[in-house]
Design a protein around this nucleic acid. Structure first.
Lengths: 209, 209
DNA sequence: CCTGAAATCACATAATAATGTGAGTTTCTT
DNA sequence: AAGAAACTCACATTATTATGTGATTTCAGG
């Protein structure tokens, strides 16, 4: 079973040479190659590719926006970004948008198939510096209960943060509204706030809930 | 310049053999090896290692908690987790806690030095399945203003999300409280909510602000 | 056994928010 | 120039929240 591939790359020369590489590989089929991503959704539906190679910088719409568009209709298809710059904020944004990995253009001739293999088995080809950025972005500092909230208070703050009213919280925990009030008073004291909104904002941003 | 290494591993046999491997490598120095992480902070200060190898499952305190502790005092030192299970939620949690990568125990003999090299140049050794989880976790779906909020409404929702009252918002934008009310009414309609808290919760979680 | 923290409930009042209705002005588009 | 959308302000009523005070029960630790 061959993998069908779509290419998006505005540079005609590079588009051609990558296309030739794909076609020369018996495991791959080049479905089509485009110089822009204006009709990416339609093309996605038409070709149902197993893999997409996407230049990160194209005129008109960028490859990053294209990735966002693709992910709106298909969360599965692997997308490998092609870029001239490493350690670039664009690469990070592309990964946030849903790209599966990326390959430096100067490495295409030697590493394209490695990257394809890696991405097809669920991996994420990327340079060490980007890997560091990715890990840093997911780093969730441990916040050992800095406000000394009790278990009950945490539960109630969590419920509050979902948008529940006092009445709903009372029902949820089968306690009276006055008790909910009491707990929330205590929470406000501890968080040093004076309204639900402040409390919820603080709770979410500081990952208390 | 040799890299100094700390090992945390409760299994004595494995701890010994990894220690021997480290000592046999001319580029590395084994500072110390411990069977638990109870004093990890003190040991970190005492040895100032360039690299830490950390078993993910140890009795008493887990390696994940240890990573959190380490990261509270040192955000730089690379930490490679050692684990028997791949594709494990523990690995993901360890990375969230601040680990730099991980290595399957069955691969230690063949890949330990590769992993060390990779992590020392800023990389993040991990299996494809974990890489997929990591990328998925950072995937920020594009939410092109799904609720059709106007610029003003977005500003006000943002201010609201910081915990500001109607009064404060009115002052911030130099408009009357009644106008703030009007905007917020419209925001509630568009977001389909009926309270500040709901709106703020929705705004933050769906990254509208 | 005593103390303190946590959790529960009640009552009261002032402040704020939620919702409805109505309307004037500006700005951009057709 | 007409129309639509956005922004502005006002007034009114009800609902909910914020804050204070006080009290009871339970449970863990000294």
């Amino acid at each position: 079973m061959k993998l069908s591939v779509l290419i998006y790359e505005d540079n005609a020369l590079l588009r051609e040479s990558v296309g030739v590489m794909i076609q020369a590989n018996p495991g791959l089929i080049l479905e089509a190659a485009f110089e822009n991503v204006l009709n990416v959704e339609a093309e996605l539906r038409a070709y149902k590719p197993d893999l997409i190679l996407m230049d990160i910088d194209m005129p008109g719409m960028s490859g990053i926006e294209a990735v966002q568009k693709i992910r709106r209709v298909n969360n599965q298809v692997p997308i490998i970004m092609l870029t001239v710059f490493d350690d670039n904020v664009h690469v990070f944004e592309a990964l946030q948008a849903g790209a599966s990995g990326y390959l430096l253009k100067k490495h295409i001739s030697t590493k394209l198939f490695d990257a394809i293999d890696e991405v097809m088995e669920g991996g994420a080809p990327m340079s060490p510096s980007i890997a560091r950025m990715v890990l840093a972005s997911m780093h969730k500092p441990a916040t050992e209960n800095p406000y000394q909230l009790t278990a009950r208070e945490k539960e109630i703050l969590t419920s509050l943060s979902k948008g529940n009213s006092y009445k709903l919280i009372a029902a949820e925990f089968a306690i009276s509204i006055d008790t909910v009030r009491t707990h929330i008073k205590k929470i406000y004291e501890k968080l040093q706030v004076h309204s639900q909104t402040e409390a919820v904002s603080k709770a979410i941003h500081e990952k208390l809930v």
